[in-house]
Amino acid sequence: MPLILETSGLTKLYGGRAAVNQVSLHVKEGDIYGFIGKNGAGKTTFMRLVTGLARPDKGSMALFGGQSLTEGRRRIGSMIEYPSLYPNMTARENLEAHRRLLGIPEKNSVDEVLQTVHLTDTGNKEVKHFSLGMRQRLGIAQCLLGHPDFLILDEPINGLDPTGIKEIRDLLLTLNGEKGITILLSSHILGELAKIATCYGIINQGVLVDEFSKDELQTRCRRCLRIQVDDVKKAAQVLESVLKTDQFDVLPDQTLRLFAYLEDSGKVNTTLVQNGVTVMTIAPAGQDLEGYFMQRMGGYGNA
């Protein structure tokens, strides 16, 4: 798949401190890229660099395979930090102002996006009287004007109730699945992110510490038995010859991860011991995105 966004060593300094430090990130066409990080990790700053709201001090970026940044940014819909709307205008007026900015001749494009986000019945209600969920949806509607190929959404489900979260999730899945829009999405609600993202990037203190696909995450977070033994080579032979399984891998520090016999750890333990392998520890392991994120951050105490 061609790359929609590729950054190379992107760096932004504030007062000598790197808010974004040498970030090389890759978003492929069709991805829903979950961008994960603690508060102040550099997610928003990175998105501001990509959208041109801030200038990088070092590094480079390419949009849509090397198109000029100005042209590329015209193909992006973005919502950074919060929906940027005129509170004294109605939903329609806000979108009308944006339609004119983009030079879209079709006036019905405003109605189309209002329908997409289910905000057609707000009438003359000014945006300042909207609920947070309605503002978020209007913000996304604004992003959708002009049929963007790439959406950059910073915490779009922040502060929403469960119904609102589901609405946004369904909307993003529809946009990605039916309209083929690539999405770069940050969120603190990792459980929600895990439901829609196809790729992930973890940023910590401005540094992109990991970048992986959903499949890779499943592999890394797969449920398993973690077995620490005195002789890994011998233990591997026992697993293959006696237990007839090759579903394991070997980690450093004399540890094996066994992806079979998950409900039968006793049998595994007995077999290994009977074949001359000393088992120091044997315990079930495996985690979800949240657990993996916490692990990458260095444990719950640091996240």
């Binding site: 959208t51 041109g52 709201l53 100005t70 940014r73 973005s78 950074i80 940027s84 709307l85 005129y86």
Partner: peptide, 18 residues
């Protein structure tokens, strides 16, 4: 200043206008 205080200047700048 309305565009700064409402954050709407981001909508304009992010569209590649100089």
């Amino acid at each position: 200043t309305a565009d700064f205080s409402h954050g709407t200047l981001k909508n304009i700048a992010a569209k590649g206008f100089s």
